[in-house]
Structures are given as structure tokens and as C-alpha cells.
Design a protein around this nucleic acid. Structure first.
Length: 124
DNA sequence: GCCCTGACTGCTA
DNA sequence: TTAGCAGCCAGGG
């Protein structure tokens, strides 16, 4: 069956290696909708704390390389701490150097292939 | 099926 | 670099 847009967002985010970051627009473009960046943000916003433990949501930032989170339970402060713990550096203006820590990304086909290998049937 | 909302983005000033 | 504005997409009520 076809995974929902949200589900696809989560799968792509899970492919982002530690120490790297990707922008909402990049995720959206990878899914075939370069203009759906807001929806990607919304997908992460809908992430449950349980799911958040599996999805590296902190590695997703905006195109400016800055954190634009607005949730009470998941502050930008926490996200920055998590990224710094992975080796991502922030400058005094709190923005990441995309050229150094930006994720190259991959095709949706690759993501799908990786998931297909890991889990053929059933969900957790 | 319509309307609103949102962790965005690109453009202009 | 920052601020304001409109466009875009999917899910929830």
C-alpha cells in the first residue's frame, strides 16, 4: 500500500545520517513536492514523543540553516543541543553552515528500497 | 467536500 | 541580514 505523505516524511528523515542536517524544502522536494515544505514541518509537528525517539526530527531545519521550532515540549534549545551532540556546529547567530553539515540527500526510490529491505511487511 | 492551520520558501524592500 | 507577503500541500474538524 501507499504510505501517507507523513509516513514518507518520517522515512526520509530517518535516512539523514548523524551529524548532518536537511531542510524542510529538501525533504519536500525529495518526496516530489518542492513547495510542500510547510507540510513537512507539519508532519514533524504531528510527531508523537514515541515516534520522535525513532525519527531524528532535530536534523530538519529551515533553508536558512536555522531552527524554527515552535513547540512547548520540543524547544529549539533542545534541538540545538541534540545537533551539537552529533557534531553539528552553530555560530553565534544560531545557524548551521549548510555547506558543511548539509545532507546530500537521496532519491525517494533509494529511501523506499532501504525501507523495503528492512521491513517487508507489517508496521511496528 | 469546504475551510483553516502550520516547526516553510522565495522574492522584494 | 531582517521583515513582510503570497503561494503551496496535506490532514483535521
Amino acid at each position: 500500500m501507499e504510505p501517507s505523505f507523513f509516513e514518507r516524511v518520517y522515512r526520509v528523515v530517518q535516512q539523514i545520517p548523524s551529524g548532518k542536517v536537511a531542510s524542510y524544502g529538501q525533504i519536500a522536494a525529495l518526496l516530489g513536492h518542492p513547495q510542500a515544505a510547510r507540510t513537512v514541518g507539519w508532519a514533524l509537528n504531528a510527531l508523537t514523543s514515541e515516534r520522535a525517539a525513532q525519527v531524528p526530527w532535530q536534523r530538519v531545519i529551515n533553508s536558512a540553516g536555522r531552527i524554527s521550532i515552535s513547540r512547548a515540549d520540543l524547544s529549539a534549545d533542545i534541538q540545538r543541543a541534540l545537533l551539537e551532540d552529533e557534531g553539528v556546529e552553530f555560530d553565534e547567530r544560531e545557524h548551521v553552515d549548510i555547506r558543511r553539515f548539509g545532507w546530500a540527500g537521496m532519491d525517494w526510490d533509494e529511501v523506499e528500497a532501504l525501507w523495503g529491505r528492512k521491513r517487508v511487511t507489517s508496521d511496528e
